[in-house]
Structure formats: structure tokens, C-alpha cells
Design a binder for these strands. Structure first.
Lengths: 149, 149
DNA sequence: AGGCTTATTGATACTGAGTTACAATTTCTT
DNA sequence: AAGAAATTGTAACTCAGTATCAATAAGCCT
């Protein structure tokens, strides 16, 4: 099957569910997929406003679970009450290494996690859907800062 | 060094920081370490109330970050705006396999994650502090329910 | 193309976790 | 025992996310 754009995928998803494709939803999705980084609702809203794109926050909040359901985005982490997301459609599944101090993020993936999933599935009888591995550490820059402090 | 109780560890931690050991803090810690399961602030507060232990929620909220700092407890996961914790003092580090439907939790640990930590440390130059692996799936009971639905 | 059903929108009010301010109280040091 | 400083509880507050509802618009059907 040929590669489909996020919009195409989402259009089909909506149709399947008897839901509607609206200009607001289109604008939000385009904005999300133009940001190639982690994002949160508030930041998304602000950057849309700055471009003169007027959608309500409620519409963004309402759209997010649909995009997750459609496997286009996923929650990555929480930080101080903010939920951050990233797009996953067309991306390899990966995990995150975060600096506790400066919040910098490195992405990585590791085949051993697939093996682990399989073993867990057999051991506990679960059907595994996904995994989320966060590794927390101190990046080299912040280590240097600490040493000199 | 002989095994120290959570209270002893925390007392020392407080002293180090110039903080004070109060009956309220003692009561909350005792309650936390009497629950051998994941807990959240609200549940903790309610179970203390039922026992006639009167501390304010604010005191619990204020204590939690200290217990985390002292490595006695850790955040495990968020669910519907609730933050859940578990004690880690005196426990092997472990990860969680959660059923998406019924929220049941299995714990496991895997030596490969230590290897992975080491490799990440070398590759990205981070000092690794910890990792948090959540595996999401459907448990066998919930699979059965889905099949019959 | 027009009409109709029904989903969606934005505004607003609300909820609920967690934080903050502050006066009263208590710990801990000397 | 006294005094400085930390802690407590109460109540007010913040802020992410949700629910309500009237107005609007998508998309199907003829």
C-alpha cells in the first residue's frame, strides 16, 4: 500500500467512525504535523494563534484523543502537569532519554525491548500493545555545571 | 551498614536538610509504608481519616516530594489526572506491565535494562539515574471478554 | 442543488489535583 | 526555658482538562 499522508489516514479514520472532517480539525492536524518535535496543547494553541489560525482550545483537547486512537500521535510524558505528545505515524517506535536538569531529550530504540515484550506476553498471558521506556539522567553539559558548582 | 527503617532514613534526611520531624510527617510515612501497594494522595488521605488520623492534604502534598528526594518512594504512573506512587526503599527496582482495560498491574524486572542503561550512558554521555518502563497490554481475562463481545 | 439529520464548534462554566499565603503552632537549638 | 525558624491547617487560588449548550456546518439522501 502506498504511503498515505496523516490527513488521509485521519480522514478514513473519521469516516469509519461516522465523524466529520472539519476545517478546524484540518488546521490542527496540519499544525501538529508541521512541528517536528514534542508538543503540548498550550504551545500548539499559541503557535496557531500567532499564525492567525483561530480554533478553540476545546477543539484541540477534543481532537487529541482521536489522533491517539488513530495511532497518529502518542503521549510521551508529563512534566509539571503538562502532557506532551509526539507524532508516531511514519516514525519508528522509540524511547526517550531525558536530562533531569535541562529537560533535553535524546531518542533511541532498542531491539531487546521487542524480545522483552514477547517474553512478558508469554509469562503473563497479556497481549502486548506497546511500551514506553523513559530513562532519566544528567546530560554531559549539566554534569559539568554540577561539578563546577 | 545495618538495615534502617524508612523512618530512620527519613529522619536523617530531614536533619541533613535542616528540616523538622513532626508527628504529622510520622503519621503519613507510617501510613504509606503500611500500604503495600501503589497509592495516591487522595486514597492515602481517606484511609488516614478512616483511622482517625487527622492531617491535612496540604501536608501530604508537601511531604511527597521530600520522600521522593529521599529515595523512599517514586512516582509510578499517571491515570486520569491521578498520580500514583510506590515505595522503593528496600525494594528491587522493577517495571510495570499494565492492562489497558482493567488497570491490573504486573511487576517484573529485567537485567537487560541495566545493560541498556550502560550503553546509553556511553553513547550519549549521560549519567543515568533511573529508568521507568511501562508496558501496556490486555490481560488474559480482558482478552477473553473482548473475544466474547 | 436543497433539505435534513446529526456531529462539531466556541464560549462559558465547571471540576479536581496540586500550590500558595498566612496566622497560629511547634520543633529544636542553646 | 526562650527564641528563631520550620511546619501546620485553612482557605483561597491556579491551571489543565471536561462538560454544557446554543449556534453552526458537514455530509448524506433524494
Amino acid at each position: 500500500m502506498a504511503f498515505q499522508s496523516e490527513l488521509e489516514v485521519f480522514r478514513k479514520f473519521l469516516k469509519n467512525q461516522g465523524m466529520r472532517y472539519t476545517p478546524e480539525r484540518e488546521a490542527i492536524i496540519k499544525e501538529i504535523f508541521s512541528i517536528h518535535d514534542h508538543f503540548d496543547v498550550d504551545g500548539l494553541y499559541i503557535s496557531m494563534r500567532r499564525k492567525g489560525l483561530r480554533v478553540s482550545k476545546a477543539s484541540i483537547y477534543r481532537l487529541i484523543p482521536l489522533l491517539i486512537e488513530a495511532n497518529l500521535i502518542a503521549e510521551v510524558f508529563f512534566d509539571k502537569g503538562q502532557t506532551y505528545y509526539e507524532h508516531i505515524y511514519g516514525h519508528e517506535h522509540h524511547c526517550h532519554l531525558r536530562c533531569k536538569e535541562c529537560k533535553k531529550i535524546e531518542e533511541f530504540s532498542d531491539p531487546r525491548l521487542k524480545d522483552l515484550e514477547k517474553e512478558l506476553s508469554e509469562r503473563f498471558g497479556y497481549k502486548i500493545l506497546t511500551h514506553k521506556l523513559q530513562v532519566i539522567g544528567i546530560c554531559s553539559k549539566c554534569q559539568a555545571k554540577e561539578d563546577s558548582a
